[in-house]
Amino acid sequence: MVLVVVGIDALDPDLVDPDMHPNLTLTSHRAIDTIDSHAGEPSTHELWPTIITGLPPSEHGLELDDGVAWENPFLRLGSDLAEFVLPDALQTRIGAWLLTNTGADAFRTPATYYGDKSIETVFDGRDAKPIGIPNYVVDPDAEDREHALRRSLGDLFERDPEATGGHRSSDPHEFYEQCMEMAMIRIARARRALRGDRHELVFAYTSGLDLIGHVTYDLHDLQMDAYAEIDEFVGELRNDLGEDDELLLVSDHGLQDGVHTSEAMVAGTNETMVDSIDSVLDVRAAIEAELRRTDHSPDEQALRRTQGDGDAVTEQLEDLGYI
């Protein structure tokens, strides 16, 4: 059995409908609590470390400062001085400019951070494949297509603290196309990891839905088009699941009218696992409980899949009349 977790940033429980989005609601789904940053709304930078550790931001230490991740290695060069000499509003504006006009990225804390701080994560001690998790970067020198696209958006996605949602786009429709490509790539990577039969846990993340939501506050139909397309992408992944595999979707917050909301969601093929999650703080424990429940070793997975493939081949030969 493989447990596949897909983190869909900003998947909003108020915007999904089981009839329209069967693959975003799965067997069971529910709204869950999230955590606001000190700036007053949930922060992606803080919440994915919370989801993989089960710790609030104050305990895992990756906290957002007025919309700018000053502890990021690029920004840390001037952060100590900035804390003393720059007003908060000016820090935010400088950070927005840096993140828009340079290669800086607020979500690239290396995975080694957790071990260095003696912080346990859901990936420790198991055959796991983390894909694109914000602030859990396995190889800081590598980037996949989603990350490369995000870094090259230019004026398609510019940080603007005065705009609704804190961002603006020169061409929302072209921006939409690039965000859909991002989501497609990350979910395709999850499918490939599932098919590889080498991992007990596959955990992939995509930011496409969040990015689109920030610039479509006056284009609600475009935001809902994104939900429909991502539902199709997840459906393709769902079709790859073996009989004993499980799929869990989790978000860090919702997003409506361009602004993060204080309600996240989970959906899954295992109702018991979904029911055990009341907040973003519970996701790690629920994943680990599911991994303990069944043997997820790669050898056991391969055996089950091989047996399943044999049965399918036998049935096909019978249908064709060869046996």
Rank of each mutant, 00 (worst) to 15 (best):
E200P: 02
M182V: 08
A312E: 14
T121R: 06
A69F: 15
R191F: 02
L255A: 07
E315A: 14
T206W: 01
L81H: 08
G258L: 14
R150F: 13
E318L: 14
Y176G: 00
V283H: 10
W97M: 09
T206M: 01
H21M: 05
E158S: 15
F123C: 06
S169V: 03
E143R: 03
G310H: 11
V202F: 02
L255P: 02
S118P: 05
L241R: 10
G103A: 14
Y205G: 00
D299P: 04
L201C: 04
H199E: 12
R186S: 07
A204R: 11
S170K: 09
L237S: 10
L3I: 15
T206I: 03
R108K: 13
T34W: 11
R198A: 14
L153K: 06
L149K: 04
L64P: 03
N101L: 00
P87E: 10
L194I: 01
I119K: 08
A228C: 07
L156R: 12
D17P: 06
T261E: 10
R198I: 00
G125K: 13
D319K: 13
D12Y: 07
G125M: 12
S152R: 14
A89G: 07
L86S: 03
N135S: 12
T121F: 07
Q223P: 00
F157K: 11
A267Q: 11
R238T: 02
D36M: 08
A190T: 07
E300G: 00
R145T: 08
G268Y: 04
P172Y: 11
L62W: 03
G310D: 09
L64V: 14
G213A: 11
I51H: 03
G61R: 08
R195Y: 02
N270V: 06
I8T: 09
E263W: 06
D36T: 10
E83G: 05
G78C: 04
V266Y: 08
G154K: 07
E146W: 03
E300L: 08
R238F: 04
D309K: 13
V2H: 07
D252N: 14
T121K: 04
P49D: 02
D36L: 12
I212Q: 09
V137F: 01
L62N: 01
L194Q: 05
I230W: 05
